[in-house]
Simulated assay, not measured.
Amino acid sequence: MIELGKIQKMVIVRRSKIGVYLNSKNDEIMEEILLPKNQVSNEMQLDDEIDVFVYKDSEDRLIATIKTPKITLGEIAMLRVVDITGIGAFLDWGLEKDLFLPFKEQLGKIREGDYYIVGLYIDKSERLCATMKISRLLEDQSPYKENDRVKGIIYSINKELGAFVAVDNKYHGLISSSEFLGACDYGDNVDVRVKQVKPDGKLELSFRKEAHNEIDDDSDKIYKKLRYRGGSINLNDKSSPNAIKLEFNMSKSAFKRAIGRLYKEQKINITEKGIELK
């Protein structure tokens, strides 16, 4: 069976003046698809099995290519806008025919030359199109559990909620605003820890290590900063979260845990003005 939008193995079944025709291996239905002449090498022979990507040409006919596109069905990628028209935008995905991004699948203002994170889907007319509405392409149930390390791409940022992550380009993930701390930006690839698997299966993510390890790291960071700053900093457990974030790029709760550790180890004093080395 020929699968639109995917890289697949196909067999050369016959030649013609315009290229070679391919069919899926062991496919009882003799559905043939053209690989254009300009992509046929001298080494290609009848009955050879080759890897091709299947999409539609400008006349909506199925066609094969040996080129590898920048995105395939079910994947997410950051693509550049090469043209904006009255019906939508067109993206460079590495093939002769640009990828269509309909108006209804856009989020915010689109500008030519800029890069946007999109997913690839098949529309009602059986055409491959791009969408910026990544969330609907992601799954809730992942194989991950608490404290697993995962990788993903940030596809949306909400100042109140945090950064939305497509884990493995497949699963829902969120770095909460308290954890995000402005450490990354839209389109960044991240390596994070699963902080919690929510009841609905979605993943709550964190840049930080497990609690017992992050206290060690935070304490060491604060201690080194104190030494660098001459032994004192005008911040303590009563300081504002924004001031702590600006100085240490950590949440207030993490800061309080860390200075508590340093105080118990008798490395610092906590005063009304801030903290200082003993």
Rank of each mutant, 00 (worst) to 15 (best):
E160F: 02
K17S: 14
H172G: 00
I2A: 02
K37M: 13
L161E: 14
P102N: 05
D98E: 15
N234F: 04
D92G: 06
R193A: 02
D148H: 13
F255H: 07
K170Q: 14
Y263N: 10
E32D: 12
E276A: 11
L205Y: 08
R261I: 00
F164M: 08
E112M: 12
R149E: 14
D185L: 05
G86T: 13
K124M: 05
L203N: 08
S176F: 00
Q196E: 15
S142E: 07
A183P: 01
E75L: 05
S232F: 12
I50W: 06
Y116A: 02
R229I: 00
P199L: 10
Q106P: 01
V150G: 09
E139F: 07
I154D: 04
N158L: 07
K256I: 15
A163I: 06
P199Q: 09
F53R: 08
G182H: 11
M1A: 12
G231Q: 05
G113D: 11
V190L: 04
E214C: 00
K104Q: 12
D47C: 00
Y186H: 03
N269I: 06
L35N: 11
I157E: 06
N147V: 01
Y155H: 06
F180G: 03
S178N: 13
K145S: 14
N189R: 13
S240P: 03
L174N: 01
K97G: 01
G230I: 07
L174F: 03
Y228K: 15
K278Q: 04
V165S: 02
G274A: 02
Y55T: 15
L35E: 07
I259E: 04
I259C: 07
I233A: 01
E28I: 14
F207S: 02
N38V: 09
D83V: 02
L101R: 03
S239W: 07
Y228D: 14
Y186E: 03
L101S: 08
K245T: 09
L4C: 04
Y223A: 01
D216Y: 12
I87V: 15
K17W: 02
V194Q: 08
D220G: 02
K124V: 09
N169Y: 13
G119R: 04
E179Y: 14
N213V: 07
